[in-house]
Design a protein around this nucleic acid. Structure first.
Lengths: 233, 233
DNA sequence: GTCGGATCCGTACGATCGTTCGATCGCCAA
DNA sequence: TTGGCGATCGAACGATCGTACGGATCCGAC
């Protein structure tokens, strides 16, 4: 196939820079001229890499989400214990979020602006990702039955166990995703402690004092330095 | 003073309609012409009620936040027990959020677009509100000492107990505020159960089974029907 | 009756936006 | 040398935006 390393590298550089501009000014307030100035590529030259501003946003979100999903599948492979799977999910999500704060802010904050196929393609990935967490939470409470992902986005059952599972799922997502509004890596806790704090709050609550020797550590501490999306400079 | 009931009623109606438009299309994608069409007031006629689009957003956010703060102070008055104060805070926040979803979405989602005095005035209210929750959480963990609000926004201490308190505060806000991205009152849990679920998760965690006879009920169940900001039609 | 302020409107202006178009440059194959 | 294609550019177009301006309408006070 057509693998043009120069083209791909320049496109990824545009995506990264545009994500930074979108994260700072907001998608609709940021202009293509802003991205042109930030990347050094001329205004019309940018349209060689994307067909419209909306497709640019889609490319950013899709590339970010695809990487996040791939990382999750890698880390979750071979792990069966529900609590361990939950810890891996939270760790992967938080580390990736902090390491790619601008892209994840664009993915979270500009979730409603895409339309048509762009929108549905991102929504499919989002449903799969939320379904994965719901499945873990379902196994955590009663280790049996289905994956739980059906009850999150489907309408049945409207009220009952499915609604509580859906609530629990999105409450956990809220605990994690909200960090893009307040987390400052220079003044707040480092990511590892943030991860432990959130995990303790979600699993045991504030009223339960944390374990004296620190929280549970995961066996494989893979990928601590290469969390970022972007391969090279 | 100049109390013009007709003027005030029309202004509040404009604020409510504009909040709905902003919540649906986003602040910067929504045009004054959209608000003109939604309210029935002509394009230039709107500028009799506000000086600029940014001031309109400020008026929406300020009116919404001021009401939220007033309600909180009323409900918290005379209550000393930290856990009870926390339950009141969460209940007030969630009920107000669900009853005024569009305004609260605008307040949460468009938090970074205001500039200058508009921005700092809203930020002051936001700091006071977050400081109130931080104070409650501080008392909850060790019932003594200060209010805890200093450690949330000030830089000292940079790492340690203050950073954990700050983290806990915003994690709880994340659990609650994220609902504007997923909560649908017609398919999800009713507000009372949402409140109980979030409170149980934050206080005791998922691994702790809930109390068999339902969660703790607050004594005074005031203001269940008049949660909305808007007085009349 | 008419004066004046409160209220509301139609219209237009200048700015900025996303996007398009045709031309140009560099580079490799023929 | 020349042809062609990938890559890039300057300039402009049409649309939409926030806002300003001058005039209309209404209504109670004198």
């Amino acid at each position: 196939m057509d693998s043009r390393p120069g083209y791909d590298r320049k496109l990824l550089n545009i995506l990264r820079t545009a994500a930074s501009v979108f994260a700072e000014k907001g998608y609709s307030r940021a202009s293509i001229r802003d991205i042109s100035g930030a990347t050094g590529v001329s205004l019309s030259g940018l349209y060689y890499y994307f067909g419209s501003k909306e497709e640019l946003l889609y490319l950013i979100q899709d590339h970010c989400f695809a990487t996040l999903l791939t990382r999750l599948e890698e880390d979750l492979e071979g792990v069966a214990d529900p609590e361990c799977r939950l810890r891996i999910f939270v760790r992967n999500h938080l580390h990736f979020f902090v390491a790619n704060m601008e892209e994840m802010k664009v993915l979270s904050h500009e979730a409603e602006v895409l339309t048509g196929d762009f929108r549905s393609r991102i929504l499919d990935k989002k449903r799969a990702y939320a379904g994965a967490l719901a499945g873990i939470l379902s196994e955590l409470r009663e280790p049996e039955g289905g994956t739980g992902s059906e009850a999150v986005e489907n309408a049945l059952p409207p009220r009952g166990e499915g609604a509580t599972l859906r609530t629990t799922t999105f409450v956990l997502f809220g605990m994690m995703n909200w960090i893009y509004t307040w987390y400052d890596p220079e003044r707040d806790l480092p990511v590892e402690e943030l991860e432990q704090t959130i995990l303790h709050l979600f699993l045991h609550g504030v009223l339960t004092p944390p374990a004296p020797d620190g929280e549970v550590r995961l066996p494989e501490t893979s990928r601590m330095g290469r969390s970022s999306i972007w391969r090279g400079g």
